[in-house]
Design a protein around this nucleic acid. Structure first.
Length: 236
DNA sequence: AAAATATTCAACCGCCGGTCC
DNA sequence: TGGACCGGCGGTTGAATATTT
């Protein structure tokens, strides 16, 4: 009947970590490595739950974390990856060395969303906010597109209504927007509907392009090998 | 200078999938 | 086979800080 809590009952510290707690966690992991998060707090002398320790380490204390502002290149990469993957922050983070999923998620919500809105692009589905803009959009680079006042209602509505992070263009609209771009990004379907991207004149599947691998370990695009059923392991 | 408002981001929460027994 | 456990994920919260009035 129900699951047990993630850590034993009793007094637990919550909220911001103190310097002393940080030092305890760092020194323990340096000595013993990342291991069983559940038993780590007790072993390290911390009054925290294992999950909290894991989060603190992964998002803040890990030595390979990159500090500082995101670069323009990182911005654009995040936007591209989000357009392909949706809110799969951990998958996106795995493509940006030194960045954590939490950091990217926060950065998306505070900076990139606004940036895309200013470009007249819905940050959830990467569609133009106003279909009246479609013609202009196809003739203009996205980065140079500015938000017109009539879009304001669309911004608010799309922000509220589109919470899935999925790409849900219908074919007709997609063709109108991007006539030369194949955005068939279905994931986990048989080879007939594999996610294929055109890269430098040759096709490269999404899995291979992102180096996330296929379920079978086989290559699955016509750049890297035979065509086989290819699934990216993503939560639905 | 103070109060109100907006923004940022570390941390928490609850759920899910994989593994073990 | 099913339940318990655990790690990991994405969404959300709220305290701290910055900006505006």
């Amino acid at each position: 009947m129900g699951r047990s809590p993630c850590c034993e009952k009793g007094h637990r510290n919550k909220g911001a970590w103190t310097k002393d707690e940080d030092e305890k966690l760092i020194s323990y992991i340096q000595a013993h490595g990342e291991g069983c998060w559940r038993s780590l707090p007790k072993a390290a002398g911390l009054l925290r739950c294992g999950k909290s320790c894991r989060l603190r380490w992964i998002n803040y204390l890990r030595p390979d974390i990159k500090r500082g502002n995101f670069t323009e290149e990182e911005d654009e990469l995040i936007i591209k990856l989000h357009s392909l993957l949706g809110n799969k922050w951990s998958l996106i983070a795995s493509k940006l060395a030194g960045r954590t999923d939490n950091e990217i998620k926060n950065y998306w919500n505070t900076h990139i969303k606004r940036k895309l809105l200013n470009r007249g692009i819905d940050p959830q589905n990467h569609r133009p906010l106003n279909l009246n803009c479609v013609r202009d959009y196809t003739n203009t680079s996205a980065s140079s597109m500015t938000l017109v006042s009539s879009n304001k209602q669309n911004i608010e509505e799309s922000d509220e209504n589109s919470s899935t992070g999925r790409i849900d263009l219908d074919d007709r609209e997609r063709t109108m927007r991007c006539p030369d771009l194949n955005l068939d990004l279905s994931i986990g379907l048989p080879s007939s509907s594999l996610p294929i991207q055109e890269v430098s004149g040759s096709s490269l599947c999404l899995c291979c392009n992102l180096e996330v691998g296929s379920s079978s370990g086989d290559k699955c695009c016509n750049v890297c090998g035979q065509v086989k059923s290819c699934t990216i392991k993503l939560r639905s």
